[in-house]
Write a protein that binds this DNA or RNA. Structure first.
Lengths: 209, 209
DNA sequence: GCAAAAAGTCACCATACGGTGACCAGCCCC
DNA sequence: GGGGCTGGTCACCGTATGGTGACTTTTTGC
């Protein structure tokens, strides 16, 4: 047998385990905790291997960053076409919000981007930006373009930013701007307000008819 | 001379310097950097004093947290009453956005809340929540209440969350949801979209007349 | 079969951290 | 003056980090 490596002493498998451990640590303990020792410990491997295989933490992060789609399981609920661009966005926002609130790992990655900790940031946010872009483009393909005179990208960005921020605050502080984010009814109100805001996407002008 | 303490060996002054140093470190290096050693070094003081005067890091944070209004120089532009609740909120949001974008220390504190690093979070966010609450209440006092049927707190929270998040992303990654946050025209678009969204605050119902 | 290369492990270094105890140096008051 | 008291400093401990060199064990190629 020439090509199949025996189960032990397999470089590729070990490198994979290291990358996986890095993602795990990032998701579980946050960006600040991602270090050579912690990752090696998580992987059950000597940290020396990280230096050998990836040239250090930076290389590891770069390698791991490329694999981070795991946190945006897109939930492509494309099964039926929405009535309008705005209602499509509304549904997408609700889906995204639910996904984010139920996914601590995703929130950790989100927070990591903001903290600006280390070189992980740019690779992570680049990957995420691409995913979000693809996502919105897909929606536009399904529902047609928003009406002219409406700056859909700007409004979408605002809604997404709000969702990200509120989900982050739910986990970090449990409150925001006087709202108790631990109560389910607060989230119902926020969801409704979010949905109402998407109505702006379907008007030719914000001022009304 | 009975009451004036000599320039050295003044407990109150030293304690003040320590608190000041803590705030400086927090604003300059972020929440993760706030530690006994770093603060003592910044204050030019032995860390032992931190334990003696504040009982440790937690006490210090608590003492410093109470003083943190510095980053929300409120810019109380109350000089003239706005036409409606919505336009008042719009102006307030614009002011807040400008303040936040121009104040790196404020952003650091904001990010600190999200990172959930250490015990600083809860005191900080509590102080901030109180300030924001006072702020919005003041506005309501000047412009009257929003029309019924509009969930103003929820929408305000969404707008504030979006502003926070976008300002944070400008500093951390320079982009969000496909928008280039380094270009001034992007911010003009966002400001306009934000302003448009505040129009929802003046309608009795989001669905139109 | 055997040597070389590769995979994995161990021991160590310098540094920094949070935390604690002992030690000086002024001040106040009896 | 001579205790106390208190503000301030120094030295140290245990632990954890990032990083490096030397070592052993396995796999591979000839």
């Amino acid at each position: 047998m020439s090509k199949l490596p025996s189960p032990k002493r397999d470089r590729e498998a070990t490198a994979r385990r290291i990358v996986e451990a890095a993602k795990t640590v990032l998701a579980r303990d946050g960006a600040a905790a991602v270090g050579v020792n912690a990752v090696a410990r998580e992987a059950g491997v000597d940290k020396q291997l990280i230096y050998r295989y990836f040239g250090g933490l930076d290389g590891l992060i770069e390698a791991a960053g490329g694999e981070i789609d795991f946190w945006l399981t897109p939930a492509d609920d494309a099964h039926e076409a929405p009535k309008s661009y705005g209602t499509g966005v509304a549904r997408l926002m609700r889906t995204y919000l639910a996904e984010l609130r139920g996914n601590p790992s995703a929130r950790r990655v989100l927070a990591a981007e903001l903290s600006g900790a280390g070189p992980a940031v740019k690779t992570l946010s680049a990957a995420r930006a691409k995913a979000v872009g693809r996502w919105l483009a897909g929606l536009r393909g399904r529902t047609g373009n928003p009406p002219p005179g409406v700056d859909a990208p700007a409004l979408n960005a605002i809604l997404l930013a709000a969702i990200d921020h509120l989900a982050l605050h739910e986990a970090a502080t449990g409150a925001f701007a006087g709202l108790d984010l631990k109560k389910p009814e607060t989230w119902a109100r926020l969801e409704k307000a979010l949905t109402d805001a998407t109505a702006l996407l379907d008007r030719p002008r914000a001022g009304g008819p």
